[in-house]
């Protein structure tokens, strides 16, 4: 058997349909809830997942029959969420991170997605290769749960 890498782990694959945005954020927040986060922390996670999944749906893919992978890990008092697609990739990551920058203004996109994720999460890593896809890794530390972890140590 492999050595345990994380305290808990889950993987989810969804089609790139916009109706799955709600499903993805609710599923990840349900998984995160075992860390006993505050309502605010949970809301931050939900918003961040929603932003990244929406990015994959709008920017990475042209059709709604592609796959978006979500991999989430819990370790001590933090949750790490990896969201990856095999779409177009981001041309200029620095530019994409800039507040109010958007390539889809006609869809009323505000260009605030990455800025919101950066503000709401403790870490954000963007990896992207043109033509191959994008992987977003974000981490949130839950400040609420030291006691819970002590209990499950046994």
């Amino acid at each position: 058997m492999n050595k345990k890498k994380y305290d808990n782990e889950m993987k989810l694959e969804i089609m790139s349909k916009s109706s799955n945005e709600a499903f993805a954020r609710i599923t990840v927040s349900a998984f995160a809830s075992q860390l006993d986060p505050t309502i605010e922390e949970l809301s931050d996670i939900k918003t961040a997942v929603s932003e990244i999944v929406t990015n994959s749906i709008i920017h990475a893919y042209d059709t709604s029959d592609e796959i978006i992978k979500i991999h989430s890990m819990i370790e001590d008092n933090s949750i790490t969420i990896e969201i990856s697609d095999t779409g177009k990739g981001i041309e200029d990551i620095e530019l994409a991170r800039k507040p109010l920058y958007t390539t889809k203004a006609e869809l009323e996109r505000s260009g605030m997605g990455f800025t919101i994720v950066e503000t709401f999460m403790d870490e954000l890593k963007i990896e992207s290769i043109l033509g191959l896809g994008t992987k977003i890794t974000m981490k949130k530390i839950i400040h609420n749960c030291e006691e819970n972890n002590l209990e499950s140590e046994s």
Binding site: R25, E108, R109, S110, M112, I116
Partner: peptide, 13 residues
């Protein structure tokens, strides 16, 4: 009870 950046675009629009 929930809104992401799509709401910003919706309101500005």
């Amino acid at each position: 009870f929930f809104m992401d950046s799509a709401g910003i675009g919706m309101v500005i629009g």
